[in-house]
């Protein structure tokens, strides 16, 4: 029984690899000033999927607390990444370690090809995707905004393809809307834009391209007030999604009056 407002809102879930999510905003857990800030910001973002990294326990610190001391794995869907991996073999190793933690068989696959731009090594990414899919992983593949690579990743069995808006941690927003739109139009699997979103307007414009969701970390964590920015990003993702569903008016190069031309007073 919804009101007109409710029925006009987007209530369709985001479905990835057969699993439903209500929020189209996925968030990272890195770079926060404190764990308390991180938890507050993530709760404010409304995200269900949160990414985590696999790293050595620091044996020199009396109590090196992993992130699971702060984030309840029953409350959030943990998506382990392979950040920092420069070869397919390394990425596969990290993915296997993450799965052995026992939460799920999902991985946000990154195979980095260049340390300055952190742009992906697409050959390594495809190779690792094939290996992990064969082992039963659900692979969400972080890639560049190249359509052909995106198509190959889908063919290789990725459950989601995640093109960048701009380089990781850059906050430059979406550099190539045409490429993002084209990838979304051509792929069957969900397209989640990952990396580069710097502020709410960036998130909104990304969603207005019709993509299925956004994954971000630095855009929230590096804001002066991460909790406020998390709310702004949540609203921007919802707003951009609604605007996409609503269908924007056509762009015109000339003005078209909004008020009637007839009924004007005699001069």
């Amino acid at each position: 029984m919804g009101t007109a407002l409710e029925t006009s809102l987007d209530v369709s879930p985001l479905v990835i690899g057969g699993r439903e999510f209500r929020s189209r905003l996925l968030v990272g857990t890195g770079k926060y000033a404190s764990n308390a800030d991180m938890v507050q910001a993530i709760e404010a973002s409304g995200a269900e999927v949160v990414t985590v990294a696999v790293r050595r326990v620091d044996l020199n610190r009396a109590s090196d607390e992993g992130i699971l001391h702060h984030l309840d794995p029953d409350q959030f869907f943990l998506l382990a990444n392979t950040a920092g991996c420069y070869t397919a073999d390394d990425a596969v190793r990290y993915a296997r370690l993450a799965r052995a933690a026992g939460f799920n068989e999902w991985v946000k696959l990154e195979v980095i090809g260049d340390s300055e731009t952190l742009l992906p090594d697409t050959a390594g990414l495809l190779e690792a995707t094939k290996t992990l899919v064969a082992e039963g992983f659900k692979v969400m593949a972080y890639t560049n905004d190249d359509l052909v690579t995106a198509l190959r990743l889908e063919d290789a069995g990725a459950v989601s393809v995640m093109p960048l808006a701009s380089p990781i941690g850059s906050g430059l927003g979406m550099l190539n809307p045409y490429a993002i739109r084209t990838i979304k139009q051509r792929l069957q699997v969900p397209v989640i834009v990952d990396a580069g979103v710097g502020t709410a307007s960036d998130a909104c414009v990304v969603m207005e391209q019709g993509v299925d969701g956004i994954l971000m970390n630095t855009g929230i964590a590096a804001a002066s007030d991460p909790v406020r920015m998390a709310v702004a990003m949540r609203l921007a993702v919802e707003s951009g999604r609604l605007a996409w569903l609503a269908g924007r008016m056509p762009r015109r190069e000339i003005a078209v009056a909004s008020s009637p031309i007839s009924g004007m007073l005699a001069s």
Binding site: G30, K31, V52, A53, V54, R55, G66, N81, T218
Partner: peptide
């Protein structure tokens, strides 16, 4: 021996 856990990441 490698002992790993989850830490914050994007």
């Amino acid at each position: 021996v490698e002992i790993v856990h989850f830490v914050g990441g994007g």
